[in-house]
Structures are given as C-alpha cells and as structure tokens.
Design a protein around this nucleic acid. Structure first.
Length: 480
RNA sequence: GUCCCCUUCGUUUAGUGGUCUAGGACAUCGGGUUUUCAUCUCGACAACAGGGGUUCGAACCCCCUAGGGGAUGCCA
C-alpha cells in the first residue's frame, strides 16, 4: 500500500492540508504503507521554494515522516512536478495522437466571455467544443495569428463515472456535468493539475488517494484521463473538510490556521495531531486524549465522519494544556526554555536547579508554552510590578500589619516547615483571617493576589528570596 | 444556475431497526476541594433539520423539502 501527500507550495502549511497529511501519515503507519511526498508546483506564478521549505519543516515538526519525497529518493522521482514536464509531455502527445485530446486555440479572453455569457443566461459553463475538429488550414491560420494553443481533453458524452469512495460510498457522475472538454496543458506548455495528478499517482504507484472532499468533483476528470491512458485507478477516500465557526471553509479570518503559527504560539505537535485526528473521528471508548499508537490502531478510512467539522480553538487549547501537564519533565523543560527566553528572561542568569523546579511547577498552569513567562514572573522577578488592587491591599491596615510582622515570623520558623507554617503563624500574630490574611501574605511574597499554592511557591523560592521580597515590599509600602 | 457531498446537544462525536426517557468530551452554569486562581471532582443545562412513507417498531431504511458545504479556472 502506498499513499501520498501532495501539497502545492503556494503558502504556509495550513490546518486543512495538515489534516490531510496527518490522516495519510496515520493510515500509512497503521498499514505499514509508504508515504510519498510530492510537490505540486505547476502553478508557476504562485509556487515558491521558501514555501516548499516551510511546508517540509512544518510536516517534520508534526512528526510526519515520508518514505519518499524531494529529499528522499525512492526510485519514483523526481518528486517535484516542475521537474517532470518531459514525462507529462509524452502522455499528452500520445493523447493528441490518439485523438483523445486536441489543440484548442481559443484565447483566455474568449473563454472568459463565453463563461460570462453562460452565467448570465443561467446555463452551465461548458466548453462549446469550438476547436474539437479543426482542419489543418484552420490550425495554421490560428498559428499565423500568433495564437498559442492549449491542449484539451475530449470528454465523451453521457458517460457514467462511478466512484467507490472509502469514506463517501458510491458516488456517480455523468460526463455531461463536468464542464465539457477540459484543458490539460496550458498555452505555455505547462500541464494542469487534474491531468498530471493521474500520471504521477500511477507512476508513483499510489494505491490509495486520501484527500479533501474539495477534490471529489475533480475525480471524474481524473478517472476519464486514467481511462484514456489505460491506467488502473487508485482507491479513493475523500475526507470531509474542516470549517470555521461560521461553517465556512477554514481560513485566516477564523483565527490561526497556519501550522507554523501554532508552533510559535506554543502548541505541542502531539496535541495538534491528537486534536486534528479527533476531528471527524472518535475512539472506541470515547476517550479523546490518546497516545498516537492508540490513534493509529483505532483510526481507519471507513470510520472517518462524512460530514465537515468545525475547528474548535478552545478545545485544542484544553488539549494542549493537558499535554503540557503530563509531558515528560526533561522534554517539556527543554521545550519551555526558549519560550521563557522569548518572554525576556535571561535564562543563564538563574540557578539551574531553581529554574528547573520553578518551570516544572509553572507548566501546570500553562495552556500554551508561551504562557510560561507570565507564570514564571512570580519566581523570576524579585521586584514585581503590582496592580492597583494589590497595591491598595498592601497599603491597607491588614497589609501593613502583615508587612511589618512577616520578616520576623519567617526568620524564626524552622527550616523544614517555614513555608507551611508561614501563614498560620502570621494569623496567630495578627489575628487576621480570611482574605485579609491570605491575600496580603501572598502579595508580600509574589506581588500578586492570585497564584499557585503559596507554600509550594515559597519552597521553590527558598527562604532567602522570600525574605528579600518581604523587605522589598516593606520599603516600597512603608508603614505610615 | 448546474453537478456532487453532508445534516444527532453551542462544538466534536457515540449510535448501523427494538437495550435511546439518545451516551462521552469541550464549552457554559452550579456544588465540593484549594482560606486565592488554575488543576481535580461532583452535578445541571442541552440534540436526532422538517414532512411523508416502509415496518409491530425508526436517530438508524426509502422519498421529498429545507439548510449547509464543495465544485463549476490556461489554481491545486
């Protein structure tokens, strides 16, 4: 079994394509199949090398491994369509010679007019077959006029095309409804997707074409080409599309759609892969956070949903937070550090042991890796900024009482229990209770009214740092 | 317009003729834990698009309607 992912390098890898890649990858792993990566770069105007490079990077980041591709020859290359033009030419020459395709001299402008007219009169825009049977003289005349012909594929009338789709079931098209004779080679000699995809899939020995539903209506054209060329056709599986919350095809205006952006915002690839695979699929037990091995063993082409799914950014975040919390300490620590630097902290200036403890503690509060800076502030910033409400609290009677007794209390507690007893002893000394007790105690250590467990926080900081913080707040908000 | 696909809680799904007064997860709301926040935990809210058939019986099968999506390119 051989499957493929065939992106066109005209931009960043976005969620929709990533999903196609992920499903292909999971299915390939499940059946121990080859995954072929093919670059469909025949749109010369929009394709770029940079885009190809970034797509490859994003795929690797997602953990997708292809067995053959532009960087990995497996004997079926080249794997960029732009490097295969001579192959396609052989087949188009053959189709023309056999009368299955013909030169069309209609200009783009003329075709636009015909389309516009068809639209106005409420007809389907079907090519009228004007150039179907041109005489040698007529062709010569067009050539003399300087016209460059396209090559059109001759579509047989009233021909039934039946597709057995692994996801959609049986889908039937009639050749009369696919827009007439379609162009397979542009006037500049560059062949067109719907044509060469058939040749590549055959030559690359693809057995299963797993792709988005937006390709379903292209499939009859591709089947017609395959039939004309005498090719065997692959098995098809068309997946429902991913949509935004307005039920329109997912696009930029719905939020982040580029995989690169997910990476830079601090999503874990495992979480993204897990979430995306849950779009249009459910595990046997209903569990949603699954190891990739479990997804691979349970997911299959015939249990993918037929209907489009809305991408839920909130649920992805929830899942990401789960992955961050349960990740391996060493792994997540390494992943978190760059985000801490990005938040403006000089990592090398802190004691490694302290930093590790604080980071591994704080990760429990992160939904995204990029949240780490904000949660580490209480550990790394010894002179924290204080918001208005907290300032008021520290200036209040209770705040002042605590500021003035905290140093002495903390200094006199035993080493092994200073953190656990701190609040209790303050309570005894001051007679304060409830929020008036607890919040200033926290504020005098972290500068904040809310945060993780205070005793845990103090243990990570160490008594010395806690005392420093207290004296900082003491000088900042002196008893007046 | 035409062709094709789709339609279960707000979202994602389970469900393949009786076990469905329709199950899970996220979100939302409320309780507990945490003298904070988050986590965790318990609970509540909440759906078979509509109409016709078929059948003893329909979320499940058939038809129609409506809604949504995709395609209709010398894009892929």
């Amino acid at each position: 079994m051989r499957v493929r992912f065939a992106p066109s390098p005209t931009g960043f890898l976005h969620i929709g394509n990533a999903r196609t890649a992920i499903i292909n990858h999971l299915i390939a792993k499940k059946y121990n199949a080859d995954l072929i990566l093919r670059i469909e770069d025949t749109d010369m105007e929009r394709s770029t090398k940079e885009s190809e490079k970034s797509i490859l990077e994003d795929l690797k980041w997602l953990g997708i491994e292809w067995t053959e591709g532009p960087d990995k020859d497996g004997g079926c290359g080249p794997y960029r369509q732009s490097e295969r033009f001579d192959i396609y030419k052989k087949y188009s020459d053959r189709l023309v010679k056999e009368g299955k395709a013909y030169y069309c001299y209609c200009s783009a402008e003329e075709l636009d007019e015909m389309r516009a007219e068809a639209l106005e009169t409420g007809r389907t825009s079907t090519y009228n077959g004007k150039c179907r049977s041109l005489s040698a003289e007529e062709k010569q005349k067009f050539t003399d006029e300087g016209r460059k012909p396209t090559i059109r594929f001759r579509v047989e009338e009233n021909h039934e095309i039946k597709i057995r789709d692994l996801i959609k079931g049986e889908v039937i098209f009639n050749s009369d409804n696919i827009g007439g004779d379609f162009i397979i080679v542009r006037s500049d000699g560059v062949p067109v997707y719907n044509y060469i995809v058939v040749i590549d899939d055959l030559l690359m020995k693809i057995t299963h074409v797993i792709r988005g539903e937006d390709h379903l209506s292209n499939t009859p054209k591709q089947i017609l080409i395959a039939e004309a060329l005498g090719f065997e056709r692959p098995v098809y599986a068309h997946m429902a599309l991913v949509m935004g919350d307005d039920k329109k095809k997912l696009s930029k205006r719905h939020g982040i759609t580029s995989v690169a952006l997910y990476r830079s915002e601090g999503y874990l690839p495992e979480a993204l892969v897990n979430y995306i695979s849950m779009l249009g699929w459910a595990s046997e037990t209903g569990e949603e956070i699954l190891k990739i091995e479990d997804i691979i063993s349970q997911i299959d082409l015939d249990n993918l949903a037929k209907s489009a799914a809305v991408f839920d950014f909130k649920k992805l975040k929830w899942m990401n937070a789960n992955y961050i919390r349960s990740a391996d300490d060493e792994v997540i620590y390494r992943q978190l550090l760059p985000f801490l630097s990005a938040a403006g902290y000089d990592i090398s200036s802190y004691d490694e042991n302290f930093l590790r403890k604080a980071v591994l503690f704080s990760r429990n509060y992160c939904e995204l890796l990029s949240d780490i800076g904000q949660h580490m502030e209480i550990f790394l910033n010894d002179k924290p900024a204080v918001d208005g409400e907290t300032e008021e609290l520290l200036k209040s009677e209770a705040g002042q009482l605590i500021i003035n007794s905290a140093t002495e209390v903390l200094e006199n507690l035993p080493d092994d229990s200073y953190a656990d007893q701190f609040v209790d002893v303050i309570k005894e000394k001051t007679g304060l209770k409830g929020k008036n007790l607890f919040m200033p105690c926290r504020a005098v250590i972290t500068g904040r009214m809310h945060g993780p467990d205070l005793a845990d926080t103090m243990k990570i900081l160490g008594r010395g740092k806690c005392l420093e913080r207290i004296s900082y707040f003491k000088t900042r908000y002196p008893a007046g």
